[in-house]
Nucleic acid binder design. Structure first.
Lengths: 345, 345
DNA sequence: ATTAGCACTCTCAATGAATGAGTGCTAACA
DNA sequence: TGTTAGCACTCATTCATTGAGAGTGCTAAT
């Protein structure tokens, strides 16, 4: 159990280190107004805090820096929400004021402003494409043996694929297929599309509707290309400005990671509601050892749709980032709901 | 005018520096088989080459490195095409063997293999979207007051925009607009779309076709969002592995540049046919001072469509890169032509 | 025209001393 | 008994110095 004084000293230490990125010494802490103790007293407590694993030293006679456990304690127990200046609030709101119609545009702008305000890197995991439903299916022939299939979803998202047309299919065949598919695909979730298409093929075979199954099969094949979820970044470079990434090797591996976020599953906690904080090794990835990730989810109507994250050094300004993310995820949810569900929704 | 010996020495110097990234000394050159001169002789010639601006010293008593002028001479006069190993050739060909149907997929893969083979960063500027022609225009209503407009081009590219429907337009109104637009837009180049849409609005007004001009106006507004050309990268990280970017500041600015290529016009010579080489400051951009860019264009049928570029340090392996780009641009043109024009084209 | 020889210059890595921030411990103090 | 002052000690950092090595420029010999 920590004494009150120890809690105070831990808090001041973390705050100071977050601000300066330098190991914090006892003398420095003692100088602060809110700490009425002498350096010697503070030294004793710091030694205890180190024994308990909340603080670390970089070398035998250096000041202390917070350990992951220290950050964890700080985040769990000391996070008083920070006031965001009205100036910055209006800056956020201004993004949403010019009524946009494109969800992608909204997300892009949000990523930008978030990284600008925090000086960290923001990552927005786009609308989870699988949760969209087919609104309309259509086909546009290109050449004799190829055509584009287009699927519009209820959220205005458009998926398209080129597929090849097996020989000897006339345009009326294609028209028949489009009608057939519109009948059976509308309302289907995108992630069910594959299965559904195969079911249609089967039913065609059963009903002996000519060789139409060939056509659907070809379409199905080109649909197999998986739709990866889009990832939007803001301020990738900000991370490189953090002093902890002065080491070129670290900088390289973190940049590499950023470029491959979508290939590495589970880097960001997507499903959970509310605000998540992962500190250092909690991210389960070597390159992220010195990073923390703060994630908030956003929703459309009642449905969780994606997440919005800030990635910064473990030494990041948790108070501020949490407050900003909180505001932003709310605004984003509202704006996207307006676009996709209409102003009444 | 350079003597034969000077030319030889310049060539050997550049080759050696490209290989080792270390300043080249007279002794080192004299050791090579193809150079039958003593270090002292070579020193004299090197001093002359320096006076003429082909070589530089990093400090008073270091070996020489090529200047930009030196590279330029090397590139213009000494580029014997390098033999690409059959091993690597098959590697390239294998990309194109699995008959793909999506142009984007082809381009993506090409970017990847190009960066893998060169260890530099590859950049493929996608099909110039403006050169595509409208094949079909259609609209899918989403809610009472919004809809998606979809334009399919003759190359299978799909552009889509959400636009808002002014109040009191029925679905039959929309249908009328779609018919109207299909009549007048099919065959139009994408870059003419704006002007064309305005012309249509005018003609609607003249013909007093109800308030349909409002609807077209709203559509036109959302079309204004410019279609930026897509940029595909391969091996962004490779550049960071080059010793010249060990300097964090340089690394940062080059990474920054890469992320904003599409915002900075003219970084890559797009229009020119054949192979272009830009060395260092010829790129007209501070962050690219230490980089060279080699560009090749690719075509579909007879039409120039985009470019394929390698960006590396000025000290890059020009011979090899030029040869690879040459092969690649040919293969890419052929493959894209096959996809978009059909096997006969 | 080419080369050997030599003095000279500059970088780089290693060494070591001075500095300073910070700790741990002990003894004094309230 | 909890807090503090004092002091010896540790370690990183900075700076100047030094020697080795690589390379040049010049001059004189071939």
């Amino acid at each position: 159990m920590l004494t009150n004084r120890q809690v105070l000293i831990l808090q001041v230490t973390v705050d100071d280190f977050i601000e300066t990125a330098q190991p914090v010494g006892s003398r420095q802490i003692s100088k602060k107004e809110e700490v009425p103790y002498s350096p010697a007293t503070i030294r004793n407590d710091m030694a205890d805090l180190e024994d308990m694993g909340f603080l670390e030293k970089t070398h035998t006679s250096s000041g202390r820096i917070p350990s992951e456990k220290g950050y964890r304690y700080y985040v769990d127990n000391m996070l008083t929400p920070q006031l965001i200046s009205t100036d910055e609030l209006t800056q956020i709101r201004s993004v949403f004021e010019e009524r946009m119609v494109e969800t992608e545009q909204v997300i892009r702008k949000s990523a930008k402003i978030l990284s600008d305000l925090t000086s960290y890197t923001s990552i927005l995991l786009g609308l989870d494409v699988r949760k969209h439903r087919v609104k309309r299916f259509s086909v546009v022939p290109l050449t004799d043996d190829s055509a584009v299939a287009i699927i519009v979803t209820d959220s205005g998202h458009v998926e398209n694929r080129v597929f090849s047309i097996p020989e000897s299919f006339s345009s009326s065949d294609i028209e028949r297929m489009v009608n057939l598919l519109n009948d059976s695909l509308v309302g289907v979730y995108l992630h069910e599309l594959q299965t559904k298409l195969e079911a249609v093929t089967q039913s065609i075979l059963r009903q002996r509707l000519g060789r139409l199954d060939d056509l659907v099969g070809s379409l199905n094949k080109s649909m197999k290309i998986e739709h990866e979820d889009k990832v939007y970044y803001g301020g990738k470079m900000h991370l490189l400005n953090q002093p902890e990434f002065n080491d070129l090797k670290k900088a390289r591996s973190i940049m590499y990671l950023m470029d491959h976020v979508n290939q590495i599953p589970g880097i960001f906690p997507v499903d959970k509601k509310g605000i998540q904080i992962r500190i250092g090794s909690e991210n389960n990835h070597l390159a992220m050892e010195d990073c923390s990730v703060i994630t908030a989810s956003y929703a459309i109507g009642e449905e969780q749709m994606g997440s919005i994250a800030i990635i910064g050094p473990t030494r990041m300004d948790y108070k501020r980032v949490v407050s900003l993310l909180d505001i932003m995820s709310g605004d984003l949810s509202r704006e996207l709901s307006r676009i996709l569900l209409g102003p009444q929704g």
